[in-house]
Design a protein around this nucleic acid. Structure first.
Lengths: 207, 207
DNA sequence: TAGATTGTTAATCGATTAACAATC
DNA sequence: TAGATTGTTAATCGATTAACAATC
């Protein structure tokens, strides 16, 4: 049961649509209808669901609630996950206040910054701590994810530090590809690159 | 010369690495070395470059500067592109201050908000205007991209408005899939979904 | 039972990799 | 010229789609 990258990318989208359906009071749905809503073929929906271990009932479809719960379980968003954010600039601040996270079980425990002017305050209710306290904080708190929102020049260094203290999940917003060993998961979110993709498509629309 | 989605996604990454190489004074590079740096096979590098119209020289490799310039040109990031941001909350504010954009030719002209308390000030030097002025602003300024950074509940409505006033590029940060006609390009950036992908990988690391 | 829809196998399609002739 | 490396065609691999038997 190997889940391919393509399916992992769709997994949160399934979860989002199933949550919507659940909130709308829909009890069960066929691969045909779910595919139509999400812009996928029924075949792909069934292949995806089977591959990540979901199950339906012939002649009936999929139970919205149990499929949703199954996805939540395999994504590990039932149990609360604590994060730290390295860098309290624009991006770090924005993420600390992103409302959607808490609903999905994510919690921001602290922001860290090397700029003394930014310390001793809170941003969106999250304390801003000096970077020197990061190791101690990681050792004495149950943190599973580190968000890299610091300048590019120190991003890999910061990633190395958090990995040294046992962090296995890195969510990187700095515009470089953070290098991690196999045993650490890193998702690079390159905002500029998505904008440049948009720009390319826009530029090649007419042709 | 149809550029596939897979290639479009890699295009900004090529640009980023070529810029780095250029800054490091590298004049030319082989598909072998470029692939090694970026984690791609030499074959893929050559296929990609050929497909978007780049060219090298047998026995020699690719000129870093001309490949970089070619990509900049097809991505349309030589000419300045003006953006407006709908929503001056956490995400909208962060984007208005993202340093990397201006270097790539992007410029934020204004933020728009429906909350009167947020008006009549600037965020990162960008004026915050009432949403009622959006149509006039779009008509009297040369804006090519709208950033949707408002609550989910009004995101599609805001997208419809900007499309009505001629915007062809939408960069969406609201956690819904914005629907656009073929003639409008939309890139949905789902922050929560990338975090959930990370969470899935983290949760399935040991198994 | 009959109808609907899954689970799964087979076919197709597209993207990546390999191979090699062309040529700088 | 000889060596290196592209451009491009062919082979492989993986993901998507189609088909259909299983079964609720």
């Amino acid at each position: 049961m190997m889940v391919s990258d393509a399916v992992i990318r769709r997994l949160p989208t399934y979860y989002r649509y199933l949550t919507m359906l659940h909130n709308d009071g829909v009890l069960h749905i066929s691969s045909f209808d779910l595919g139509k809503t999400m812009g996928l073929t029924p075949s792909q929906v069934r292949q995806d669901i089977n591959c990540f271990g979901g199950a339906g009932r012939q002649g009936f479809g999929y139970s919205v609630i149990s499929l949703k719960d199954h996805i939540a379980k395999i994504m590990g968003i039932k149990n609360k996950q604590n994060m730290v954010i390295i860098g309290s600039g624009n991006i770090g601040s924005a993420i600390s206040g992103y409302v959607g996270f808490s609903e999905s079980g994510f919690n921001v425990s602290a922001l860290f910054d090397s700029d003394e002017k930014k310390l001793d305050k809170t941003i969106n209710g999250v304390p801003v701590l000096p970077i020197s306290e990061l190791p101690d904080f990681l050792m004495s708190n149950d943190i599973s994810i580190a968000v890299i929102a610091c300048p590019e020049s120190v991003a890999q260094k910061m990633a190395n530090t958090v990995m040294e203290y046992g962090i296995k999940g890195i969510w990187n917003f700095a515009p470089i590809d953070i290098r991690t060993p196999e045993s650490v998961v890193c998702v690079n979110v390159s905002l500029l690159e998505t904008l440049q993709q948009l720009s390319f498509r826009l530029n090649n629309l007419k042709k």
